[in-house]
Amino acid sequence: MSNRIVELEILRYNPETDEEPKFQTFSVPCAEDWVVLDAINYIKDELDRTLSYRWSCHMAVCGSCGMMINGEPMLSCKSFLRDLPDRIRVEPLTNFPIERDLVVVMDDFMDKLDSVKPFLIPREEKTVDEGEFLQTPAQLSKFKQYTLCINCTLCYAACPQYAHNEGFVGPAALALAHRYNLDSRDVGRSARADVVASNAGIWECSFVGACSEVCPHGVDPAAAIQQTKIASSVDYFRDMLIPGRRS
């Protein structure tokens, strides 16, 4: 272990004893290749066993350990201490209710994911014995980027629209809907439109673009939402101009 001592200011909240959250500072001796999560694990193991937070994979793919690190939503397993100052402020993700310490309430996000019908609604029925649906690498590459979301909810923590209107379906869920809408095997776009193209859906987004800036996997939800806006506007005008398109 190197000699570097890092001060972690962690926002603590125990609903059974605290009126409101307050910061607690821990001094942690850190190795140079540590991430913030390693320092938090050190606190848990050596200094204070009552600290609560979520984590699992330590390789930026399970999406559990999102936190505000010096005001920025980040995966704590991918936030290297070498890139951070000696004093680090760690808070639970903003825009979510705090359950306890760094653990936030995820219910709203899970409901939003569910609401956009994020599953394949197939163009044609086919049995397994008939083999796979064909899809060229070009068709795959159209939506591949939007399959990479790990549901870490950093984008919700970054989104000021979600902060002010919790009804907003939000970046990750809309990007996931877009992923299926773009899939050559899928015909579910109109089934998803009720939620996606509603006022609480894409039209609530004012293209701040913060979601895409904080995304740890380059999913770019902002792009997905703008593309959906264009597609659904085109739909709207088509329905108006071509008689009988929509009964």
């Binding site: 609903p15 903003t94 705090i98």
Partner: peptide, 21 residues
């Protein structure tokens, strides 16, 4: 038991909190 805490968000000055805002 549970008592989730909701942090207040300023309606007026929220956009000053982040350079990107």
């Amino acid at each position: 038991s549970r008592r989730p805490y909701i942090r207040p968000v300023s309606k007026v000055s929220w956009w000053l909190s982040q350079p990107r805002y």
